[in-house]
């Protein structure tokens, strides 16, 4: 009895190391780049149960936060390339090089699935002296530097949108950085800042309740969640070339992972992300579902990196030029 046990044990151990085709032989580990309760955490924890059903194994999720996600990214890159460690992350790694944070970005990883992208909107305190984006621009031009914009630190969504605005318009404001878009939106309701760019999902409930007002959608078309909000290109077509732009969420493995493992993961995530409940959750929060992988996802990532890196660098937020890393100008 003992002998068979030991034998079976040794055999199964050997099998699991041999990268057999019947991946996955054990539970996977999902490393989430952001903390519990954040939007990345939320999206990942709600897609995982559907994917687990496809894979037949559980995904053990851990939040490894810190350094705008550098710590999680670095950790996954030091794990074996066997597909058992997934990086569950947002757009941030595409800016690590320009921000001088790390030499890693998504070119070191294989996109198993880019799940969704968020749509930025521009919202304002309900008592602010402007009601549309056009009025905001006029107001800012009359009071340069006096209007306070809620932000989340360099490289975050508000700072990038702010940089895009000032790259195409005469738009001088004072950015006050907060810990995330949630706290910034709260501070805006308390009157600490006048307006801010935010991701639609974070602001939508407050807009619906009339606690804040929406000035524009930073996209080419209106969103079904907030049909009354005007797309920014309606008044300022010069933004067309930068759009669509937005934060995104994706699941990645190391690029050296064997192809059959990649294929299994891609299939499982594709099916899991197509689940109705997950899609409803995304659209309720105003996220645009993408559900893309492989080359399609790679070209999306490349384009995103090129647009954003140069915007960030030209606005003086970057530490290093994108040129150093061969990131092409858009």
């Amino acid at each position: 009895m003992l002998k068979t046990l030991v034998g079976a044990f040794a055999l199964s151990m050997a099998a699991s190391f041999a990268m057999a085709n019947d991946f996955p032989k054990q539970d996977l580990q999902g490393v989430i780049q952001w903390g519990a309760g954040g939007s990345t955490d939320l999206v990942m924890r709600s897609v995982a149960p559907h994917v687990e059903k496809e894979l037949g194994r559980s995904i053990v999720m851990t939040n490894k936060t810190g350094g705008v996600g550098v710590i999680a990214t670095q950790f996954v890159s030091t794990q074996p390339a066997d597909g058992y460690t997934l990086l569950m992350s947002a757009e941030n790694p595409q800016l690590y090089k320009v921000m001088g944070l790390s030499n890693l970005d998504y070119s070191n990883f294989y996109p198993v699935n880019v799940l969704a992208r968020g749509v930025p909107i521009i919202v304002a305190n309900k008592d602010a002296p402007f009601n549309t984006f056009k009025e905001l621009v006029d107001y800012v031009q009359k009071n340069p530097g006096k209007v306070r914009m809620g932000s989340t630190g360099p490289g975050g969504l508000p700072s990038v949108v702010g940089a895009m605005l000032s790259s195409k318009l005469d738009f001088k404001v004072t950015a006050v950085p907060f810990d995330g878009d949630g706290p910034a939106l709260t501070a805006m309701q308390g009157g600490a800042v006048e307006f801010m760019p935010a991701v639609l999902g974070a602001a939508v409930e407050h807009v619906k309740a009339g606690r804040i007002k929406v000035l524009a959608i930073f996209d080419k078309q209106a969103s079904p969640v907030l049909p009354d909000a005007r797309p920014i290109t309606a008044d300022y077509p010069q933004f067309e070339s930068l759009l669509p732009w937005g934060p995104f969420f994706g699941v990645f493995v190391k690029s050296e992972t064997p192809d059959d493992v990649k294929a299994k993961l891609v299939a499982a995530f594709k099916k899991g992300a197509n689940n109705e409940a997950f899609q409803k959750l995304l659209s309720d929060r105003g996220y645009v579902s993408m559900n893309m992988s492989g080359d399609e996802a790679n070209s999306f990532l490349k384009k995103w990196q090129s647009t954003t890196s140069w915007i960030v660098y030209d606005a003086g937020m970057g530490k290093k030029s994108p040129e150093e890393f061969g990131i092409p100008k858009p």
């Binding site: 810190g66 350094g67 944070l101 630190g153």
Partner: peptide, 8 residues
């Protein structure tokens, strides 16, 4: 200590 969240 660490990455300053406001200025990186």
């Amino acid at each position: 200590v660490g990455l300053d969240p406001m200025t990186a």
